[in-house]
Amino acid sequence: MSKTTRIAVLGSANMDLVVRQPRLPQPGETIFGSGYGTVPGGKGLNQAVAAARQGGAVDFLGAVGADAYGHELRDLIAAEGIGAAGLAEAGEPTGTAHISVVDSGENSIVVVSGANATVTALTAGQEEIIRQSAFLVMQCELPVDALAAGIAVARAHGVFTVLTPAPVVPLPEGFLASVDLVVPNQIEAAELTGESDPVRAAELLSAGGTWAIVTLGSEGCVVAYDGEVLGLAPARPVKALDTTAAGDTFVGALVARLASAGGGLADGGPVDGAPVGAAPVGISDERMIDAVRWATVASSISVTRAGATSSMPTLAEVAAILA
């Protein structure tokens, strides 16, 4: 891929500490688990790996500690062919996510940010990586100041911005409206808009020329643009084992698909030297719908496997189902 189809992921990198158990304990209760493991994760790293495995040319921007977990995450990034020039080494320990997976496949997660919390601004090198990309992918596990800085660089150079607003945190006024595509799940969409109806929430989130995709788990997702819903994309029926990385797999695969075949952009990529505030290049309805279909299959494969990055499919696996 050329530089105009690169994907920059600005986000968190954690080590996931995963316990499998029959159910969640009551307050004060002790129960036995059935398994434990450590798996590289963090919403940012998850999305970077998912995009790379779908053929995306990916650079990761974030921070890890100088500890064993940090070295393990760096090894994974290298093994996946993801660019690490934008990955800093912080004085804080590498972030961790403490994940309980119950037998039904659902999960609950507590994140300890660690090194991720040190990413409060962008370095000159990180800004340059964003300028050389077609897409900037972000989540809310980094400080909002860093995300705002990334959006400012992206908009100045016609880079298409994608935000997963998870976890839901206080955002500056106008922040969501400055993003080109927002991808919350149904709960997050309701928190952001006050609307429990995902269709109405998608309409509100997409108002003003933004794309919004509200994911609904086993019910698929709602796709909207500029205040109007394009439709409900159904999920691919599977028996779920672990839903930990389903949403991140969806986003990574979606962006990788948009970045393929000339970037999925109307004129082939970002505009180098575009003035500050320049509108990003658009994506057609047909291109987005195609990418949603691709992402839906990738996500459906991931929930049949345990773990976060360990569950994510390759390009060949998705292509075989869609052939």
Rank of each mutant, 00 (worst) to 15 (best):
Leu17Asn: 08
Ile213Gly: 09
Val229Leu: 07
Met138Thr: 09
Leu192Ser: 10
Ala146Cys: 05
Ile213Asp: 08
Ser113Leu: 14
Leu136Phe: 04
Pro170Met: 08
Ser104Leu: 05
Gln47Gly: 13
Ile130Glu: 02
Gln47Pro: 11
Leu216Gly: 06
Thr193Pro: 07
Val112His: 07
Thr94His: 03
Gly95Ile: 07
Leu45Lys: 02
Ala266Glu: 11
Leu171Arg: 01
Tyr225His: 15
Thr309Lys: 09
His157Glu: 14
Gly35Asn: 01
Thr215Ile: 11
Lys239Ser: 15
Gln139Val: 11
Ile301Met: 10
Pro170Thr: 12
Leu322Ile: 05
Val168Arg: 04
Ala152Ser: 09
Thr94Trp: 03
Ala63Gln: 01
Ala245Ile: 11
Leu205Phe: 01
Arg293Glu: 15
Ser12Ala: 08
Asn185Leu: 10
Gly44Asp: 08
Ala201His: 04
Thr296Leu: 05
Val112Ala: 14
Ala320Ser: 15
Met288Phe: 12
Thr123Pro: 10
Ala274Asn: 01
Val111Pro: 00
Gly33Asn: 02
Trp294Met: 05
Ile109Pro: 00
Val39Lys: 01
His157Ser: 13
Gly247Tyr: 11
Pro22Ser: 08
Gly11Thr: 12
His157Lys: 06
Gly105Ile: 02
Ala149Pro: 03
Leu205Gln: 05
Glu228Met: 08
Ala240Met: 07
Leu61Trp: 00
Leu181Gly: 10
Arg200Cys: 03
Val64Ile: 12
Tyr69Trp: 14
Glu219Leu: 12
Arg155Ser: 12
Ala88Phe: 03
Val144Ala: 03
Lys43Asn: 09
Ala279Tyr: 05
Asp16Ala: 09
Ala240Val: 11
Gly33Ala: 08
Thr314His: 07
Val229Ile: 06
Ile109Asp: 00
Glu173Val: 13
Leu87Phe: 06
Gly158His: 00
Gly150Val: 05
Phe60Met: 14
